[in-house]
Computed example of a mutant assay.
Amino acid sequence: MHIENLREYCLSKAGTTEELPFGPDTLVFKIGGKVYLLVGLDQVDALRFNVKCDPDRALELRSNYPHSVIPGYHMNKKHWNTVYCNRELPDDDINELIDHSYDLVFASLSKTIRENIIAV
């Protein structure tokens, strides 16, 4: 997976916005104003990104894929993972982790915001 593929996949999700709130080197994808994925734009050789994850599932993923899924760098390590692409996990599994993060954040939004996103 390349960063262009990651960006296209995130932007294909309903209501997703992309921003650079932490400066020009960190691209952030949000749903309803809340972050669900962060990726550094300075990565050339080892693409990695942070996504939200259910705490129990995060522990399982880290155990099963120790070279690809680690506690979230500069994030709450209980709820966030750093995922390395192009290692153990196929792209379909990586996309599923993005979906999981998106779904967790979407579910945390108010009913009004969720309905507005669905209506678009």
Rank of each mutant, 00 (worst) to 15 (best):
G32K: 03
C85N: 09
S63C: 04
L61S: 01
L41G: 05
A46Q: 15
R48P: 01
H100G: 01
M75A: 06
G40H: 12
A46N: 15
A58F: 10
I31D: 07
Y65D: 08
V28W: 14
R57A: 13
N76L: 10
L59M: 03
P55S: 07
Y65T: 06
L41M: 10
C85S: 13
H79I: 05
H100I: 12
S68C: 07
P66E: 12
G32D: 10
D91F: 06
A107Y: 00
M75G: 02
M75S: 06
K77G: 05
I31F: 07
G32Q: 09
I70Q: 12
T26E: 05
R87T: 14
I31C: 06
G72V: 03
D56N: 06
L59W: 00
D45A: 14
S101F: 02
V69E: 08
C53A: 14
L37P: 08
Y65M: 09
T26W: 02
F49A: 09
F29N: 11
V51I: 14
P21I: 11
E88C: 05
C85T: 14
Y36P: 11
D25W: 00
I70M: 10
A46S: 14
R87K: 15
D42S: 08
S101T: 08
V35E: 13
L59I: 00
D93C: 01
G40A: 10
L20P: 11
G32Y: 11
L89H: 05
P71E: 06
T82W: 03
T26K: 07
G23K: 05
V39W: 01
F49N: 08
L89F: 03
L61P: 02
N50I: 05
I31S: 05
N81M: 01
A46F: 10
K52Q: 13
M75Y: 00
L38T: 14
F29K: 12
K77E: 03
D56K: 01
K77Y: 04
P55F: 01
E60I: 12
H74D: 00
N50A: 12
L38M: 15
C53P: 00
V69Y: 00
K34L: 14
I94C: 02
I70K: 10
L47T: 12
C85A: 15
V28E: 06
C53D: 08
N86G: 12
D25T: 02
T82E: 07
L61C: 03
P66R: 14
I70E: 12
V28C: 11
N86T: 06
G33F: 15
K52L: 09
H79L: 09
D103N: 13
L89W: 07
